[in-house]
Write a protein that binds this DNA or RNA. Structure first.
Lengths: 240, 240
DNA sequence: CGGAGAGTTGACTGTGTTCAAGCACCGTGG
DNA sequence: CCACGGTGCTTGAACACAGTCAACTCTCCG
């Protein structure tokens, strides 16, 4: 079995923007002809980051903003007590992260899960570019509203659902997002999250997540092994 | 003791927009001279709603959007099981709610807590008005990002903080917001939330919220009685 | 006076945590 | 090729925070 590409040091390198498969779906693309050329001029290069490395730290001044070209990462907050709450997971094509356009200091941290490549933009340039295009500004607001809806859905999970439901819904959400990007067939998927990541995203402990995953396995719903997710019973999963 | 104005049927009625004290802080005001006149033309009147009435139901098509002129309300989601998760509380001057500008169907419900008056706008008109003003579009995005930050802070609460901390932080947040609007001196405030509302916002039960409030009273931190909040020890509260 | 709704209290239960030990896997280096 | 150490996963026992259920009180209001 070949190494998972998510764990290699240098994932696929972006060529130029006009051939980039992620571009058409990006929030900063208005679909016009000249768009790719403009964005290519806006792009300030790329950066490779190894797995489990810090990308932003809470309080950093963000002059540069990144788009995740390849690999997985996550946004989180750290408490004084050392506890961690993961806010969201970032998949290939996701911006890191939209609010950065408007905040002088980031109010969360970001860390790579796998090796990752980032496309680099200057915040001020990207901001001007969007502001000059009402069409894009509207699209940007839409992105923000959708992120809001996702966060609120997660809020409902933490407030009112059992550990079993939370874990199931998180996995389902990630598989759906991967599917939308053409990175999974909904039966199998790369899955670089550890039990501790799942726990920190869902307000649980890694020990309990382990027990819940055992239940899922016992029920024949899904199994998670060595960075690989397999879904045996999509029906049962969707039921949540 | 006079009746609390939050529970009267018809709260203060808005005059015209140019004399409205809420306008300068509203997200749809760019601060220009002609602004109030334009908004006054945009405004399609007002509506009074009694306490504990439904304002939006999840799935509704929203042609009209509202700004809360007076009174308290809250946004929430209902689960199949009948459980409720409150997403946020709305105070005088808050829009209900920003995402409505971009969503054809609302993905949450809204209910009045006290008697309420709403200023009414047509969604399409408001949307066009903002889109035509890049300055406003940017302001709108900022509002959205701030709402996002608040929701993520709540997410951290539900995921990683004890019941005692959650209740304390919620009360502190509301007092700060009231203070910012000139509606509280941080020592006392109207507080129309019941224990069930607090519980549904924080992922707890009303019984347990009752116990936590008793602790706060016993510790001499704050007391909550008959729709009135009194803070005895702001230090201890801010410590959370 | 009577009823509804919200808050209070107590006993009991349960979901998820804590702590601790052991195991499997994997990359590294001899 | 194997020994080593680190990290992450598994398991079990004891515990705690918060939930459930049920009875009771208080207040408001008709």
């Amino acid at each position: 079995m070949p190494k998972l590409d998510q764990t290699t040091l240098a994932p696929a390198l972006p060529g130029n923007c006009s051939t980039c498969s992620l571009l058409p779906a990006a929030f900063y693309c208005d679909g016009s002809d000249g768009c790719a050329a403009i964005i290519e001029r806006l792009r300030r290069g790329q950066r490779g980051v190894r797995a489990k490395r810090s990308i932003y730290r809470e309080g950093d001044v963000a002059q540069e903003i990144y788009v995740l070209y390849d690999g997985w990462a996550f946004r989180y907050k750290l408490l004084h007590s050392g506890q961690r709450q993961i806010l969201s997971f970032l998949l290939p094509g996701d911006p890191i992260s939209f609010p950065l356009l408007h905040l002088d200091r980031v109010n969360f941290s970001v860390r790579s899960l796998t090796a990752v490549t980032l496309c680099i933009f200057r915040r001020s340039e990207m901001s001007d570019y969007i502001a000059a295009r009402p069409q894009l500004a509207k699209q940007a607001e839409l992105i923000c509203v959708q992120a809001m809806a996702a966060t609120e859905e997660r809020l409902v999970d933490l407030g009112r659902r059992s550990a079993y439901e939370r874990v199931g819904k998180l996995i389902l959400e990630l598989v759906d997002r991967l599917h939308a990007k053409g990175l999974s067939d909904r039966k199998e998927a790369p899955f670089p999250l550890g039990q501790l990541h799942i726990a920190d995203a869902l307000g649980l402990t890694s020990v309990h997540v382990g027990r819940v995953l055992r239940q899922f396995r016992a029920n024949g719903v899904l199994s998670l092994h060595r960075g690989r997710l397999t879904i045996h019973d999509p029906e049962a999963l969707a039921q949540l």
